[in-house]
Amino acid sequence: MADRRRWADLAGLSPFLLYVAIFLGAPTVVLAVGAFRGPDGWTLENLHAAFTGVYGDAFVVSTELSLISAVISAVVGLAVAFVIAAAPEEGPLRQVVSTASGVLANFGGVPLAFAFIAAFGPVGMVTRWLSTNGVDISSFSLHLFDLSGLVVVYLYFQIPLMVLVILPALEGLRPQWVEAARSLGSSRWQYWRLVGGPLLFPPFAGALLLLFANSFASYATAAALTSGSIPLVPIQIGQVMSGNVAAGQENVGKALGLGAIVLVALAMGGYGWAQRKTTRWLR
């Protein structure tokens, strides 16, 4: 009887499991298998091609972009969260910033690209306004479409994400801990070096990994902004898919995808681990 019930329960899960297997499992497996297939059977050629030459460069450029944008947004986001955490909890500042962060962290892709072009593009509002005031930023305008421009644009969704992720950890630092350290005769610096810093390190490092993964996986913003001129890993995968490269590269595209999955999954795994460590002392 108990056995039959367990089978009934498992049967209840089957629609979900089947759905995930077909629409997430199948595409991933087909891709992973394809990455190791060549014209005459199994091969490591695709992986080799994916990590050398143009495609290898794409991994370097993507890593560069993701690292820089992750580090800048982690530092700025942490600073914003610090200022916010000092404000009263029910005050308007805190409410506005946390609501805005929730909304802006989801803001990427097409609208973001057009908003930046409208502001800093060659005929953008800021560009025009500055030029009527005698400041010529047209050389900067062109940078909007290269790597440094992309870093600035990515900050737009990365900083809010950082605020969202790190604010709970900052709020979790109890005032009693500062008081306890104070009454034991420590300075502010000692408190941060010995108590606050070590407690914040795991969530901060985890957030860095999350931001890295988030930026590494982004395709829409870069595609809409640069129409594919910057050789990032996601852009290259898109180019291979759309057939914009020499024939016979389909499986190299799959190998690129596999590499991207491994990198992003590792970073996300590290983030999850750091989060579990943090929830132990949070709340």
């Binding site: 595409p27 590494f216 982004s218 995808g257 999955i261 992003v264 999954a265």
Partner: peptide
């Protein structure tokens, strides 16, 4: 979250 959308697109 571990599978970039562009990679999923390729797989699909």
């Amino acid at each position: 979250l571990a599978i970039p959308a562009v990679v999923l697109a390729n797989g699909v």
